[in-house]
Simulated scan of single mutants.
Amino acid sequence: MALSLHLGGRGELLVLLHGIGSRWQVWAPVLPRLEERFEVLVPTLAGASVPELADEVLRLAGDGPFHVAGSSMGGGVALELGRRGAARSVTAFSPIGFWGPASRRWCQASVTAARGCARALAPALPALSRTAAGRVALFGLFFGHPTRVDPEAGLADARHLADGPGFAVARAAFARHRFAGAEALAGIPVTIAWGTRDLILPAFQARRAERLLPSARHVRLPGCGHLPFADDPRTCADLIVQGPAER
């Protein structure tokens, strides 16, 4: 279910998909660049499994094909849409599904801990988000450069993480999700980008992605965290814009 959405720009349709516990505004740093090239649809989706989220995107955007970029769980959904033939191009930032059992459990535990902290610290969130040290404490798990996070945006992100619906359902669904479908993706431009300072899905999973999806373009993002858009918005936007030109 779409809780809210943003639509802007003009051109070929591009759909942007957030990760677990997040919201469409996580893409805000890259939207100005993307809307110069695409009509950009960015929904906030309630938590669900990857196949269920792919179904919801198709209800919102039509059967496609359209360009799609996703972050974390949204990256897994983007790859699923590519596997289904609904995508013209796929750009996935630190997508889920290239994990082993231990790294999958770490991901589940870390995002659960972040949600718990956001709830426990709710009264202090406004004050913490206004200071550089507070942003490091609140957002350091997700961003390579947490002090670059806009305080008001970070506060809203933390509140959504604390209260967003479907979190437990999506987290449980991680256990059933592993990447598959490399053959179906071989015919479209696919970019997999990974921040070198990703603490949620550590970058060793990028090497597994290279092995399992050799037809893709694989990019490392120096100094970037799990959510690289505030860390290096221009590079992230350029990767999405350049994706359709790869073939």
Rank of each mutant, 00 (worst) to 15 (best):
L5N: 04
L5F: 14
L5I: 05
L7F: 00
R10K: 15
L14M: 15
L14W: 06
H18L: 08
G19W: 01
R23P: 08
V30H: 01
R33D: 15
F38K: 07
E39P: 01
V40K: 06
L41Y: 01
T44C: 10
T44R: 04
A46I: 07
V50Y: 07
V50F: 01
E52Y: 09
D55W: 01
D55L: 14
D55I: 12
V57L: 04
R59F: 00
R59N: 03
G64N: 08
P65K: 06
P65E: 06
S72C: 14
M73S: 12
G75V: 01
L79C: 02
G85Q: 04
F93G: 11
G97V: 08
S103D: 11
C107W: 11
C107N: 13
L121Q: 15
A122S: 13
T131F: 01
L141A: 09
F142P: 05
T147Q: 14
D150Y: 05
A153W: 11
G154L: 03
G154Q: 01
L155F: 08
A158N: 09
R159G: 10
L161M: 11
L161P: 02
D163P: 00
V169T: 13
A170H: 04
R171E: 14
H177N: 13
H177Q: 12
F179E: 11
A184Q: 10
L185T: 05
L185F: 08
G187P: 07
T191P: 06
A193H: 09
T196F: 07
L199S: 14
Q205F: 05
A206F: 09
A206P: 05
A206E: 13
A209Q: 13
A209F: 05
P214E: 13
S215P: 06
R220E: 15
R220C: 10
G225C: 09
H226E: 07
P228S: 06
P233A: 09
T235I: 09
L239Y: 02
L239W: 07
V241R: 02
G243E: 09
